[in-house]
Design a protein around this nucleic acid. Structure first.
Lengths: 190, 190
DNA sequence: TTTTCCATGTAACTCGTTACATGATTTC
DNA sequence: GAAATCATGTAACGAGTTACATGGAAAA
């Protein structure tokens, strides 16, 4: 999951490099950026046409031989300005994004100790294999930025793993064998 | 941003504690969980009625004096089962969630070195104040789980901060004074 | 007694996704 | 020459959000 703004940035950034048609953009994202950004193809089309309506990109229709005609998008001045604005903004401002699993953690004491321990152990293994996969992956990356993004992700995964190892201990010690009858989170007392 | 599943878990979890009406749930989330989960009020109503359609919760209409009538939701057996299932699943599986800012990092070499350095420094400060705020916050939390979630978030923030400090150095050294004319990410060469 | 706030949602709209379309090309 | 795949999207649906509604209670 990724915010809309980040997806917009991605599209603008790709168009900043050169004008492209939707299919081409989708191919590029899938081929080269799959580890950094998931975006269903139809979503890209959808967003491109909205960017056009918003006046950030210009579009024209083009045809090659008897292939289906295609819409070619290019960044206009407004788009370029917007791109740099958003880029700086998204770099400078951490935006809240709750880490995956936090909601589940909140309710962990609905589980018996053994169930909780088991789930946490599985999570740790999953994190391990993700990390292993990242470290073994090609990384003949496009540009410096993509490398940075991936490196960061690995760093955060390692930190998360470490945290979960600690949490496992805490849960082993602190969680009762059986969960209380009713869930722990008490209703507002006011 | 949070996945739909996590929001569903949240609602089911709150209803597992006791039956509640929409307004009450919204109040609770805002008052007690605002740091763990943002959810616009209308979204909760919307999801509750979908959970009802899905057969996971039962609902009845109730009226107090001449207040507006309200829909009271309670978890049924299917819902309870689903709740525990989802809970274990979300605990055990890390789900990919790109860290906020990764997209921007990808395009960092569209910026001049000084602009990039400046943005990164601002981000680090922002992370610092977020951390400071977390550490100074009440923390007379409801239940063990919420404490865990917050603690984890702090740990990840610290790791992220550390990573950005390193990145700042790399950018200072590695980024050219001026960005190349055209953006760095080359179009697919195939 | 006018204004503001509380309690309780509903309606309308927009965005993103899942499914489907379609004619050329390559493969068997 | 039938089957699969490529190239290119479009349409319809469902989910989430922004805006709005409404009548009593509390405050001024």
């Amino acid at each position: 999951m990724v915010t809309r703004d980040e997806r917009i940035l991605l599209l603008l950034g790709l168009l900043a490099a050169e004008q492209q048609h939707g299919y081409q953009i989708n191919e590029f994202i899938e081929r080269n950026l799959s580890r950094v950004s998931q975006m269903p193809r139809a979503t890209a089309y959808s967003m491109l046409s909205r960017l056009e309506r918003a006046g950030l990109v210009d579009a024209s229709t083009e045809q090659q031989g008897n292939r289906p005609p295609r819409r070619v998008y290019s960044l206009n001045e407004a788009g370029e300005a917007r791109y740099l604005e958003m880029l700086v903004d998204l770099l400078a401002n951490p935006g809240f994004r709750e880490p995956p699993g936090d909601h589940a953690l909140m309710f962990i004491d609905s589980l018996s100790r053994s169930a909780a321990v088991d789930a946490l152990q599985r999570r740790i293994s999953a994190l391990d294999s993700e990390l292993a996969q990242m470290e073994s992956s090609p990384s003949h990356e496009v540009g410096m930025g993509v490398g940075l993004a991936i490196d960061r992700r690995a760093a955060l995964l390692r930190a998360d793993r470490a945290w979960f190892v600690g949490a496992l201990e805490r849960v082993r010690v602190g969680l009762p064998e059986q969960p209380a009858t009713s869930s722990h989170v008490e209703p507002a007392h006011g």
